[in-house]
Design a binder for these strands. Sequence first.
DNA 1: TTAGGTGCAAACAATTTGCCGTGTT
DNA 2: AACACGGCAAATTGTTTGCACCTAA
Lengths: 129, 129
Amino acid sequence: MAQRFSHQRERIYQAVLESRDHPTAEMVYHRLKPELPRLSLGTVYRNLQQMAREGRLAELAGPVARFDAVIRPHTHFQCAACGAILDLADLPYDPALDRTAEACGLTITGHSLVFTGLCPRCAGEKQPA
Amino acid sequence: MAQRFSHQRERIYQAVLESRDHPTAEMVYHRLKPELPRLSLGTVYRNLQQMAREGRLAELAGPVARFDAVIRPHTHFQCAACGAILDLADLPYDPALDRTAEACGLTITGHSLVFTGLCPRCAGEKQPA
DNA sequence: TTAGGTGCAAACAATTTGCCGTGTT
DNA sequence: AACACGGCAAATTGTTTGCACCTAA
């Protein structure tokens, strides 16, 4: 289980660290390809995923699209265990946040706020080791 | 351009509306298949995407994963035009939000806050029609 | 009648995995 | 030497699209 040192992994980590644009696996691959001509895309995926599991990297968003019939902006909750998404009706969308963000000099049209944790069902199933 | 009434589209909309779990295209398909045996997955994708474009449905997250070497929770901004993601260093992560959400009876481990709008470059390129 | 909608299957795109030789410990 | 790692390509999965037919208006 113990992982070993790996030249590629360190390069991949550095690439994500240096490029501030939250790159996709593909972007990392193309950036490293010139200096590591034998690098393969599969390795990039494997290492990104591994480092994300360990918490060395953060992963933004997932690979599948989900839809919501509630148009009015609102707050979501996603269970880390089962992936279910719930609405948090009690936690209203706060437009004041958008105005705060505009202070950064950006044109803000809205925001998405998603809480992470364990849903009641998964929290119940968790039994202490 | 004007769209017509479509039985399938209404069923698909209803399916998203009735299932409160923010379903994926696949989930919608499987839920409707029994009552609409000739329904095809392509149609589900087409209609979900169309309704999302029109604003009749909201789409959560995109299909490609991105990575961030900054582990410490922080706030993001995504440009609606070019898709670029920026860090909003001036808008710190607010742990108080998590405590508020716990009032809903959930175990909260964190949250993600992503603002949407136009980045400076895309805002500059926008010329009035 | 006319343009949009649908099923179906093929095309694409994003991501994962098996196999087997290589590198770290 | 043992076992994690990396390259490569095939396999999976998620999503889009071309085409011929069907249907609302």
